[in-house]
Design a protein around this nucleic acid. Structure first.
Length: 757
DNA sequence: CGTCAAGCCCTTTTT
DNA sequence: GGGCTTGACG
């Protein structure tokens, strides 16, 4: 036996420790870019190499993409160490499963458990996973029934509360005890009715996937023991972003042997808004007093300059655990802080810079543009289109959420599970069958006494007195159509089934209405069909259900996994966690945008915004550019926001500050004239690269700080550029002002050149 | 029952 | 500014 182990080769000391620590609880604090995926894959490969059967290992990752990549890397590692290991090529979906550990997101792992064992909770295996859109439809129905005024309590908001309850593993009964306000009492009422409705529809929502699994473990100990005996080694990545329900899942599962390895970085916790509890990782050692702790502090990704800059930003957060990140990479270019006139100039600059990087040898696929809110993507997208630059947007209107795609999915859901009323109501009249709301109301009215599931009520349509002959025939026709498709589902794989569906309902003709949108819709349908082909090798029954499952659980970043096209990537800061790029541009670094206006008044939320900035910055290997615009069109109004506080936290020594203007201080805000100036004479920003002060507002101030005095609704003010006007509203440090010439604009009080009259 | 237009609210972030 | 819902009409 040689002294060195290939599975330890090329690892640094703490990484080695992580690989060698195989039994008992282990906490790995892994800073950004510290090679934690490397440590984790080597650890798992090493376990297998030591004789632990792969199926005894569970690894929970943050995205399916991460799981997939780790599988590939482990496969490669094991090839090296054991050439005789019969690894297959991974061409089909199932063939690898026995040779490799179970890896996936919390949601996909739990879905898998529930598909197998939910019957022990008295529920049906054919359950449907509802997405946000389905949830909202169901909630609207529920609230209508409860006669809760939708304008008082919005369905979306209600679902938000419910999701919070579920992520904290609080059931309706317990929620009722907590409810103190009338509003919360209504929410709780809706919560329990919503739960019942989910059961009726044989559906679960995202949160249920975790919570129902926890319930299964708690209520049926024998099942828990079975899974404990199966998964003896448990690894959880991105542990700082787990919620309480996920914590319970992990704790229960690891309860017996406690071979639990959790990895994370408290500085990268950015999902508190959906119930992530940073205490899970901070208190891990309280939970497991004998837990080993390993810190990965060497950064292999970024240049030292980027590291210094991002450390300076995150260092402003109080109460962080000690961490000393360092990089052996050479210094690299400075962090560029690019101040531009407005959001359009920002888009143009981003694209210009991306093109310039390409000429410097950085491929487009190695570049990313990050923003705080999805709404900001539109401008960048337009700039890309205008410049003819290939781009790819993650998030926003998701492919599977497009109307035509959802319609087809609704048919497929219904074929699998006729009790899915949300899907049924969605497509009963798509394409138009002349079964409209009036008809459905008549059926529901009749059904009030019968109390049948809607699907069965439809089958008895001829007994509904209020319906005429023609309507009854049309309903019967629809019922027949579905029955026929259900029959086909037993012998056809999902793509063939869908092709038959499309033919029968004449969807192509319905969608292709000679408009551009119609054509696009049809193209989306064809794309959906091509995704389905992957599932054609499976048995018909599993083909449909596994397709639907994957569709329900793919995340946006998963799309990057098998996409090699050379394009600029656009995504939100939240989505970029775990990814890396040669060049990163973060746009909209302005107060009220990033940090977002809704976070400015809450200390903890502000800290989370800062962590989000840290995550964004640490994605960059070599080039990092931060954009801020002096004015920005938002909600149809021009806002003037101060540069983000995060920008002022950057050390001067590692930043280069640029501005696109040498125009006089007043001209940037002048209206029409300024637009004409750019149209006729494109700016050449890099000619005058001498750093302009980022605090442009100082030139404009009238001396007195307007914000220090009270500005309220009705105040008369004078603006340095726009003249006199009246304040119409003040919220969150931003004032809406109606000027005497009729113009309406919004200003951040802390910075706008305003004088109170 | 389907289409069109006016008015609404909106923007945090996602599996 | 814009996407989506709601309401009036054909």
């Amino acid at each position: 036996m040689p002294n060195h182990d290939p599975l330890l080769d090329g690892l640094n000391e703490p990484q080695r420790k992580a690989v060698e620590h195989t039994t008992g609880p282990l906490l790995i604090l892994a800073g950004a870019g510290s090679g934690k995926t490397r440590a984790l894959t080597h650890r798992i490969a090493s376990l297998i190499h030591q004789g632990v059967p792969p199926w005894q290992i569970l690894a929970v990752t943050f995205t399916n993409k991460a799981a997939k990549e780790m599988k590939t890397r482990i496969t490669n590692l094991l090839h090296i160490t054991d050439p005789n290991s019969p690894m297959d090529s991974g061409s089909s979906l199932t063939s690898q499963s026995a040779k490799l550990p179970v890896m996936g997101t919390f949601h996909s792992v739990c879905a898998r458990i529930l598909r197998r064992d939910i019957t022990h909770l008295g529920r049906d295996r054919t359950f449907i996973i509802y997405d946000t859109d389905d949830q909202e439809r169901l909630m609207k129905e529920v609230m209508r029934e409860l006669k809760i005024d939708e304008t008082e309590l919005k369905p979306k908001a209600t679902l938000g509360y419910i999701s919070r309850f579920k992520s904290e593993a609080v059931n309706p009964a317990e929620a009722r005890k907590q409810a103190t306000s009338e509003r919360m009492e209504q929410v709780v009422l809706a919560y329990s009715a919503y739960e019942k409705a989910l059961r009726r529809n044989n559906a679960v929502d995202f949160d249920d996937l975790i919570l129902e699994t926890v319930r299964l473990f708690v209520e049926v100990p024998a099942i828990l023991e079975r899974y404990q005996a199966t998964w003896r080694y448990i690894n959880v990545d991105e542990y700082q972003d787990t919620n309480h329900a996920q914590y319970l899942f992990v704790t229960l599962l690891a309860g017996k042997e406690k071979n639990l390895c959790v990895i994370g970085d408290p500085d990268q916790s950015i999902y508190a808004f959906r119930g992530a509890d940073i205490r899970n990782i901070l208190e891990f050692q309280k939970e497991y007093p004998n837990a080993a702790q390993i810190k990965l502090e060497q950064n292999y990704r970024s240049t030292q300059l980027i590291l210094t800059a991002s450390d300076a930003v995150i260092a402003c957060n109080p109460g962080r655990p000690q961490k000393a990140m360092w990089s052996s990479r050479k210094e690299g270019p400075k962090v560029l802080v690019n101040e531009v006139r407005d959001e359009r100039a920002e888009g143009e600059e981003v694209i210009r810079l991306a093109k310039q990087r390409v000429t410097e040898g950085v491929a487009l696929r190695e570049q990313v543009v990050l923003y705080r809110t999805n709404a900001q993507s539109r401008l960048i997208e337009e700039a890309c289109m205008h410049a003819g630059l290939p781009y790819r947007i993650l998030g926003g209107v998701k492919f599977y959420a497009r109307r035509e795609v959802k319609d087809i999915l609704a048919y497929l859901h219904l074929i699998m599970n006729v009790h899915d009323t949300v899907s049924l109501l969605r497509i009963i009249n798509v394409p138009s069958r002349k079964i409209g709301d009036t008809t459905l109301e008549k059926i529901q009215e009749w059904n009030r006494d019968q109390n049948l599931p809607l699907w069965e009520a439809l089958q008895n349509a001829d007994r509904v007195p209020a319906l005429n002959e023609g309507t009854i025939t049309r309903i019967k026709g629809f019922v027949e159509l579905l029955r026929d498709l259900q029959l086909s589902a037993q012998s056809l794989a999902v793509s063939a089934l869908t092709e038959k569906l499309l033919r029968t309902i004449g969807l192509e003709k319905w969608l292709r209405d000679d408009t551009e949108e119609g054509e696009e819709r049809w193209q989306n349908v064809l794309e959906l069909l091509s995704v389905m082909k992957k599932y054609d090798t499976l048995e018909p029954e599993v083909s449909l259900s596994s397709f639907l499952e994957e569709v329900a659980l793919v995340s946006e970043v998963d799309k990057l996994a098998d996409n090699n096209e050379d394009a600029l990537t656009l995504m939100t800061l939240h989505l970029c966690k775990g990814l890396e790029f040669d060049a990163v541009s973060i746009v909209g670094c302005e107060e009220n945008i990033f940090p977002h206006a809704s976070c400015l008044w809450d200390k903890e939320q502000l800290e989370e915004e800062r962590r989000l900035m840290y995550v964004g910055m640490t994605r960059a290997k070599t080039h990092l550019t931060l954009f801020c615009a002096r004015s920005r069109m938002l909600w149809g109004q021009t806002q003037v926001n101060a540069p983000s506080r995060f920008l002022s936290d950057l050390p001067e020594s590692v930043t280069e500050r640029r501005s696109d203007t040498v125009l006089s201080a007043f001209s940037w805000a002048s209206e029409k004239g300024e637009e004409r100036a750019t149209a006729h004479k494109p700016l050449e920003p890099y000619r005058q690269a001498e750093p302009t002060s980022i605090q442009f507002n100082q030139d404009l101030n009238f001396g007195e700080e307007a914000s220090q005095e009270t500005v309220e609704e009705g105040s008369r003010v004078e603006h340095a550029v726009f003249g006199q006007g009246t304040v119409t509203a003040v919220r969150g440090g931003v004032a809406d002002i109606e000027f005497d010439n009729g113009k309406k604009k919004s200003f951040a009080l802390s910075i706008a050149p305003l004088k109170i009259l």
